[in-house]
């Protein structure tokens, strides 16, 4: 089981959408994944337990885990490229 956290500023809109898209992607690709949402400031305390971090806001910090920008899920621009990057981390 892969653990993924999806973070945005308020854990309201953008991370809700990105989490949903990642769940769909994992299901489609047959990857067992636990996708949870959180706020950006909560990432450091949770990073150790996850395989992948996806953020929908800009973060410059290095959490010591693969971190991808999930903006493409919100803007619709570059969505497939982002899906490929996610799969590359999870496989």
């Amino acid at each position: 089981m892969k653990k993924i956290i999806v973070a945005c500023g308020g854990a309201v809109a953008t991370s809700t959408l990105a989490a949903e898209k990642i769940r769909e992607l994992c299901q489609r690709e047959g990857i067992a994944a636990d996708v949870q949402q959180c706020r950006i400031p909560e990432i450091p305390s949770r990073a150790s337990e996850v395989d992948l971090i996806v953020t929908t806001a800009r973060v410059d910090a290095d959490y010591g885990k693969p971190t991808l920008h999930g903006i493409a899920f919100v803007s619709g621009i570059g969505e497939e490229a982002l899906e490929e990057k996610i799969l590359a981390v999870l496989r």
């Binding site: 809109a13 809700t16 959408l17 619709g76």
Partner: peptide, 14 residues
């Protein structure tokens, strides 16, 4: 309640 409106939010953003 964002978790109750996943569909609404994703439709809005789409």
């Amino acid at each position: 309640d964002p978790s109750g409106h996943v569909k609404f939010l994703s439709k809005t953003i789409r």
